[in-house]
Simulated scan of single mutants.
Amino acid sequence: MTRRVVILNTDIDAVVCSIERSQTLPADLEMADLEIYASYQRLLENEDLSTPLAAILALTEMMERSNAGTMFELLNELKGGAEALSRQSSNPIGLNAGCELFIEFITLFPHDAATFSDLKTELIQQGRQYAEQALTYRTKIAELAFDFIKDDSVILTHSYSRVVLQTLLMAHKRKRISVFVTEARPRGMGIKTAEKLTAVGIPCTVVLDSAVAYAIEKVDFVLMGSEAVVESGGLVNAVGSNQIAIIAKAANKPFYALAESYKFHRMFPLSQYDLPSHNPRLLSFPQSLNSTRRSSFGRRASESASTPIKITQEDIAQNNPDVDYTRPDLISLVFSDVGSLTPEGVSQYLVGMFAG
């Protein structure tokens, strides 16, 4: 695909006017931010839509509502919408991948439209068609991963992943499999996976997150979903994925990641603390504890004991991350709708995808 950045009606005065207009309408921009976030939340109610696809469709709806008169204005609005979604999400990694892909697609889209209005109509149609087609990617990935699942396989998976679930359901129709599912705290999404697998007759056991090393010897391989696959070939997924990968590597068990190509993300974290979902609040020590200790100095032991400190599961969840980063050297293969890739292959694919 040739790289084409199309700006219709591009005389200097029009560009200057569009910038001035955007600077003088902050209220409208705030309303647009609210509208796109409301669209995104509504789209996420559809069980089949993952966060990147919901973000792509939310941007498509934003484009449909847009009064932009040039491609320059439209791209600015879409980038503003993507930033608004990112700001309002505690874990923006998946939606950032979708927004990044969609904006790049808009920028490079080849067309023969005679007017900007025709071009915008075509872009809206293409955005919806892509989302519809992307819903078939899980089936492609399941078919690809199916060949790696042998009869009587014992599989370990983590948390809840639509593509992993579809792969396991497909394997169950033709092979005998058993599945260990981690509890996946703090959200406990592994229980949802276990319930769905058990409902169709797949032998399934929920494993404590802290018992993965205990269970790993019984496992043939790990099958892991993803929130994003980054430029290094590493994986961003529900917290606990990294420690499972480390344990699998130590036990010499294959670690397979499943990821739709719209989850490939141009991000290069070097550690857990490079993820955009990380903030200083996570794993922090409560400041009030020191003041409590100071104020209780000199009290009788009975007085201190009368006000015991209670730590709730909600407190623990708020002080812990939702996702973590798994290094590429811990991953055996990434199964995607574009093929089975090594982590290095993912990196090469991303370079090609965004090079035009």
Rank of each mutant, 00 (worst) to 15 (best):
L75P: 07
L49Q: 12
P52D: 04
L59N: 01
A58S: 02
R65I: 05
E73H: 06
L57K: 09
A55W: 06
L78Y: 00
L59H: 00
M71N: 13
I56M: 13
R65F: 10
A58C: 01
A54K: 04
A68R: 09
N67F: 06
E64P: 06
L74V: 02
L59R: 00
L59Y: 00
L49T: 07
T51S: 15
A55V: 10
L49F: 14
M63K: 08
L57E: 07
L49W: 07
T51H: 11
P52N: 02
L75W: 07
L75F: 14
G69K: 11
L59D: 02
M63L: 11
T51V: 07
N67T: 10
S66F: 00
T51C: 13
S50C: 14
T60V: 09
E64Y: 13
S50K: 12
T60N: 08
N76A: 11
A55R: 02
E73A: 07
M71W: 11
K79L: 15
A55N: 01
E64N: 14
S50Q: 12
E73S: 09
I56V: 11
A54S: 11
M62P: 06
L53C: 11
L78W: 00
A68M: 06
A68N: 08
G69T: 11
A54H: 03
E77N: 13
G69W: 03
E77D: 14
N76E: 09
R65L: 03
T70Y: 02
K79P: 07
L78N: 02
N67G: 10
G69C: 12
A55M: 09
A68V: 07
A58D: 04
A58N: 06
L49D: 08
I56P: 00
A68K: 08
L74P: 05
N76M: 09
L53V: 12
E61K: 12
A68E: 05
S66N: 04
N76S: 11
E61H: 13
E73F: 03
K79W: 14
G69M: 06
T51F: 10
L75R: 14
G69F: 06
L59I: 01
L49K: 06
E64V: 05
A58G: 02
E64G: 10
L75S: 15
M71Y: 11
E64C: 07
M63Y: 00
T60G: 08
K79E: 10
L49E: 13
A68H: 09
E61V: 01
T60L: 05
E73R: 08
L78M: 07
M62Q: 15
E61W: 06
L53F: 07
L57G: 01
L53G: 08
L75N: 15
I56S: 04
